Simulated scan of single mutants.
Amino acid sequence: MNKKDLLIRFLLGGAAVSLSYLITIISPWKILAGIFAAFPAVMLTAVIMVGIASGTKKATNIARGSVYGMIGGIICVITVLVTLETSENWIFSIILGLLFWLGSSLTISTIRERAARKVMSHV
């Protein structure tokens, strides 16, 4: 990764975080801040940068893989919410949520790959 790519990722990601923070401050609907906090800026930036550097096929692979991470994100949010409500320990809740995010993302990806191989072996 060159410095220009890194700078673009930094600017796009930082803009998304800043926008989320501003919405948190100015919005009368606090749920809107949570929705913007989940803005997929990292995924979009990765697809753009890989598409520019390596073409559509590799960008497609990044977008496809991001589906697993986003599904894992749902698992993470549910885990953090339930753990916060039961334990009231935000550090533990975040750590557990991140572990569940990674585990569920990898599990879903593995299941999908095995299913695809199984379908291909029957063709």
Rank of each mutant, 00 (worst) to 15 (best):
K3E: 07
F92K: 14
G65F: 09
A53N: 15
F39Q: 00
A59M: 08
R9N: 02
G97T: 04
I78V: 15
V47F: 13
G72F: 10
A53G: 11
S105W: 12
R64C: 06
S87R: 12
I95Q: 05
V50P: 02
P28Y: 06
A116L: 07
Y21N: 10
S121Y: 10
D5T: 10
W29Q: 06
V80F: 12
F39C: 04
R64N: 08
G13E: 12
V77D: 00
A41S: 12
L84E: 04
L99E: 06
Y68N: 09
L12D: 01
K118G: 09
I35H: 02
F39G: 00
I71G: 06
I52M: 09
S93Y: 05
E88W: 08
T45G: 03
V77H: 06
G55Q: 07
F100E: 02
I95A: 14
M1R: 14
S54G: 06
F36S: 01
L102T: 05
F92T: 07
W29R: 07
I25K: 08
V82I: 15
L96K: 13
I25S: 01
R114T: 14
M1K: 12
W101Y: 14
I91N: 09
M1Q: 10
P40L: 07
T24I: 00
L6W: 11
W101S: 02
A116W: 04
A63L: 15
T56E: 04
A116H: 05
P40H: 05
A33Q: 03
A37N: 07
E113G: 03
L106N: 04
L7V: 15
L98C: 10
G34T: 03
L19E: 00
G13I: 11
G69V: 01
S105E: 14
V42M: 07
P40F: 07
V123E: 03
K30R: 08
M1I: 14
V123D: 03
I23T: 09
G14T: 13
G97H: 08
K58W: 05
M120N: 11
I52D: 01
I75V: 15
R117P: 01
V77K: 02
G103P: 04
A37T: 06
T45Y: 06
V82F: 12
V42C: 01
F92I: 10
I35L: 08
L84W: 07
T24G: 00
S66Q: 09
L81I: 03
I26E: 05
T56L: 08
V67G: 04
A38I: 13
L7W: 15
L99N: 13
T79C: 08
V17S: 04
W101P: 02
L19T: 14
L98W: 05
M70K: 00
I62S: 01
I71F: 15
E85C: 05
N61L: 13
F92A: 14
